[in-house]
Measured scan of single mutants.
Amino acid sequence: QTQEFDNEEEARKAEKELRKENRRVTVTQENGRWRVTWD
């Protein structure tokens, strides 16, 4: 699953929550947008 964010702060917040659920999370930056991908 993927979700896009406008800034790193929001993306990192989402990453932190997903990691609490023991998910594999990848955060990438593309064209000024932050993308959080998880399984």
Rank of each mutant, 00 (worst) to 15 (best):
Q1Y: 14
Q1A: 11
Q1H: 14
Q1E: 11
Q1L: 11
Q1V: 09
Q1W: 15
Q1N: 14
Q1S: 11
Q1T: 12
Q1G: 15
Q1R: 12
Q1D: 09
T2K: 05
T2N: 06
T2Y: 15
T2P: 04
T2L: 08
T2D: 05
T2A: 08
T2H: 09
Q3E: 09
Q3K: 13
Q3W: 15
Q3I: 14
Q3Y: 14
Q3A: 13
Q3L: 15
Q3S: 07
Q3T: 07
E4F: 15
E4C: 14
E4G: 03
E4S: 09
E4M: 15
E4D: 09
E4Q: 06
E4A: 05
E4K: 03
E4H: 09
E4I: 15
E4T: 13
E4P: 02
F5L: 01
F5H: 02
F5D: 00
F5T: 01
F5N: 01
F5I: 01
F5M: 02
F5V: 01
D6S: 08
D6W: 06
D6F: 06
D6M: 07
D6N: 09
D6I: 05
D6P: 06
D6C: 09
D6E: 11
D6L: 08
D6G: 06
D6V: 07
D6R: 05
N7M: 05
N7Q: 05
N7C: 08
N7E: 05
N7S: 14
N7D: 09
N7Y: 06
N7F: 07
N7K: 06
N7H: 07
N7R: 05
E8Y: 07
E8F: 04
E8S: 02
E8A: 03
E8P: 03
E8W: 05
E8M: 04
E8R: 02
E9R: 08
E9M: 11
E9Q: 10
E9A: 12
E9Y: 12
E9W: 14
E9I: 11
E9L: 12
E10H: 04
E10Q: 09
E10W: 05
E10G: 05
E10Y: 04
E10V: 03
E10F: 04
A11Y: 02
A11S: 02
A11C: 07
A11F: 02
A11L: 02
A11D: 01
A11V: 03
A11W: 02
A11H: 00
A11I: 01
R12Q: 04
R12E: 03
R12V: 04
R12N: 03
R12F: 05
R12G: 02
R12A: 03
R12I: 05
R12M: 08
R12K: 06
R12S: 03
K13I: 13
K13A: 14
K13F: 11
K13W: 13
K13T: 11
A14R: 15
A14W: 15
A14T: 06
A14E: 03
A14K: 15
A14S: 06
A14N: 03
E15H: 03
E15G: 04
E15K: 02
E15W: 09
E15F: 10
E15N: 02
E15Y: 11
E15Q: 07
E15M: 08
K16P: 01
K16W: 14
K16D: 10
K16S: 12
K16Q: 13
K16Y: 14
K16R: 12
E17Q: 13
E17A: 13
E17H: 09
E17L: 13
E17I: 12
E17T: 09
E17K: 11
E17G: 06
L18D: 01
L18R: 05
L18A: 08
L18N: 03
L18Q: 03
R19D: 04
R19I: 11
R19W: 13
R19V: 10
R19K: 11
R19Q: 10
R19L: 14
R19H: 06
R19T: 08
R19C: 08
R19F: 08
R19G: 05
R19P: 02
R19M: 11
K20N: 10
K20M: 12
K20G: 12
K20Y: 08
K20W: 07
K20I: 09
K20H: 10
K20Q: 12
K20A: 14
K20F: 09
K20D: 08
K20T: 09
K20S: 10
E21D: 12
E21T: 14
E21A: 13
E21M: 15
E21N: 13
E21K: 13
E21G: 11
E21Y: 14
N22L: 07
N22A: 08
N22V: 04
N22T: 05
N22I: 04
N22W: 15
N22D: 06
N22S: 08
N22F: 15
R23V: 14
R23I: 14
R23Y: 15
R23K: 13
R23E: 07
R23G: 08
R23N: 14
R23P: 08
R23H: 14
R23W: 15
R23L: 14
R23M: 14
R24T: 14
R24K: 10
R24H: 14
R24W: 13
R24G: 06
R24S: 12
R24F: 14
R24Y: 14
R24L: 12
R24Q: 10
R24N: 15
V25D: 00
V25F: 03
V25G: 03
V25R: 00
V25K: 00
V25N: 01
V25L: 03
V25I: 06
V25Y: 03
V25E: 00
T26E: 11
T26C: 08
T26K: 07
T26V: 13
T26Y: 13
T26R: 09
T26Q: 07
T26D: 05
V27A: 02
V27M: 05
V27F: 02
V27Q: 00
V27N: 00
V27L: 08
V27R: 02
T28Q: 06
T28N: 05
T28H: 07
T28V: 11
T28F: 10
T28G: 04
T28S: 12
Q29F: 15
Q29D: 04
Q29M: 13
Q29R: 09
Q29W: 14
Q29Y: 15
Q29T: 09
Q29G: 06
Q29K: 12
E30P: 02
E30W: 10
E30S: 09
E30Y: 12
E30L: 12
E30D: 07
E30K: 08
E30H: 12
E30G: 04
E30F: 12
E30V: 14
N31S: 08
N31G: 12
N31D: 09
N31W: 04
N31K: 07
N31F: 09
G32H: 04
G32D: 05
G32I: 01
G32N: 06
G32A: 04
G32K: 03
G32F: 03
G32W: 02
G32M: 06
G32P: 00
R33F: 09
R33T: 08
R33A: 06
R33M: 11
R33K: 15
R33I: 12
R33D: 01
W34Y: 03
W34E: 00
W34T: 00
W34L: 00
W34Q: 00
W34S: 01
W34D: 00
W34V: 00
W34I: 01
R35N: 04
R35C: 05
R35M: 10
R35F: 15
R35A: 04
R35K: 12
R35S: 05
R35W: 11
V36P: 01
V36K: 00
V36E: 00
V36S: 01
V36T: 01
V36I: 10
V36F: 02
V36N: 00
V36G: 00
V36W: 01
V36L: 08
T37G: 04
T37Y: 10
T37D: 06
T37S: 13
T37F: 10
T37E: 11
T37W: 14
T37I: 10
T37A: 07
T37K: 08
T37L: 06
T37C: 10
T37R: 10
W38E: 05
W38M: 05
W38R: 02
W38P: 03
W38T: 07
W38Y: 09
D39M: 11
D39Q: 11
D39S: 12
D39F: 15
D39P: 04
D39A: 08
D39E: 15
